[in-house]
Design a protein around this nucleic acid. Structure first.
Lengths: 232, 232
DNA sequence: TTGAACTCTCTTGCATACAAGAACTCTATC
DNA sequence: GATAGAGTTCTTGTATGCAAGAGAGTTCAA
């Protein structure tokens, strides 16, 4: 239905090399953990290519902020600092607020129907207490909304940001917080209402409030994860 | 005083390779024109290195949207489409609006004083009718404001955007439009007032209105340039 | 036991050779 | 004159070899 969009979403002239996508997915989904060494030679053997394309992909990932290349030492999976996470949630709020406003301006488009359907399915997920399905639907809701803004540059920046946040991992943790499920669904409904009434300002405002609320939960979850790793 | 910031501004662990910066500057400042071929071999000879580092830099520039690499054909300086320019100005509005809000929240910081001084100098430039100096001060105003938001992720995204817009070229064209100089300066003053009164919402609103206004002028100038190139 | 120096290994950085393909040019043919 | 085709040339894509440096481990001396 909806493209994954965290891992792959650009519709550019040059389709992304499979290598880059696979490496990025490994990082974003947590197959490799922050601090892990991504050695070019080892990866080259794993993927059965030479170091050259591996190297290009790693350099690209460095620019995306997912890894850190230390000259003549190694390439390591990067972990955003608390400050960076906070900064990125500010950006997320701005991006999605902009998207909501643009979408409201566009009026009735297919994406709006997709959002309505999403909320309907979310309602069922909430009733069944299916947190995992709901988490997936949340991701779909937000990416559909941004896609509906019909602004490719926005999408590019947004995808970049979401990859850095390793968003879906944080979201699934966030939603385990008690009561957050029902709140989140209601907020989604309010967003759709504002968009449907073609009020860009209201749409942006509601959207930003929603992102701010979930950001707070997410930041909390991220901080909690931090504590669990280093209990001392 | 203020770092150029269009060409170089990141304070990352890995300092940017000189090659990348030089190539980027060549594109942003118009030394090489859209459509021009950037052949790896030729550049390697010019810069007296092998193709490998050149290649890395070009790949990076591709990700930044400044060049287009067509496999086995060539790497070409890219020209944003009218649609992309429009999209990017939407993003610019969101970024600078966010920055103004964040800066207002921070209160009295050195950057605020820099902004005040900037407006004072701009006043002089307007009185003297020095459009070039004013153009430079405009650039400085906006980059100081974003820097003042104290959000590195925002700065990264903003720099990326500005490079794609080859912003200063467009600005200098824009400001030649009659009456725009005085208007622009007054708007800058209004932005500072809003920030000084520590009203994030007002600051964001005024900022966004300002960006929207200058965007309209800039888009017009870009369109005009387009027409001049292809008169038929 | 501690510390310093040295060596050894592993990493990325860079240069280069070769492969593959796109596009242009020139020629032959209709 | 127009067009199809082959060949040439230019481009980027990939593999690989070597250089340089960081860092861990070891050894030796105090």
């Amino acid at each position: 239905m909806q493209e994954s969009s965290i891992v792959e979403s650009k519709a550019r002239s040059n389709p992304e090399t499979p290598l880059l996508g696979r490496l990025r997915q490994m990082i974003v989904t947590g197959v490799v953990q922050p601090g892990d060494l991504l050695a070019e030679t080892a990866l080259a053997q794993d993927f059965e290519v030479s170091r050259t394309p591996i190297r290009e992909a790693l350099k690209q990932l460095e620019r995306e902020g997912l890894v850190e290349v230390r000259a003549r030492v190694g390439t390591f999976v990067r972990k955003p600092t608390q400050r960076e996470i906070h900064e990125m949630f500010s950006l997320k709020e701005a991006f999605e607020g902009l998207a909501a406003g643009l979408l409201a301006r566009r009026g009735a488009v297919p994406e709006l129907d997709q959002l309505k359907e999403n909320v309907a399915r979310s309602q069922q997920a909430v009733e069944r207490g299916d947190a995992e399905l709901y988490s997936q639907l949340v991701h779909e809701f937000h990416s559909t909304l941004v896609a509906g803004a019909d602004n490719r540059k926005l999408s590019e920046h947004y995808d970049l940001l979401m990859n850095q946040l390793a968003y879906h991992r944080i979201v699934s943790q966030t939603l385990s917080l008690p009561g957050r499920l029902q709140n989140s669904k209601d907020e989604h409904q309010a967003i759709i209402d504002a968009i449907s009434s073609k009020d860009p300002l209201a749409a942006e405002l509601v959207m930003r409030r929603h992102v701010a609320a979930s950001s707070q939960s997410a930041a909390l979850a991220a901080m909690k994860e931090e504590d669990e790793e280093q209990p001392g």
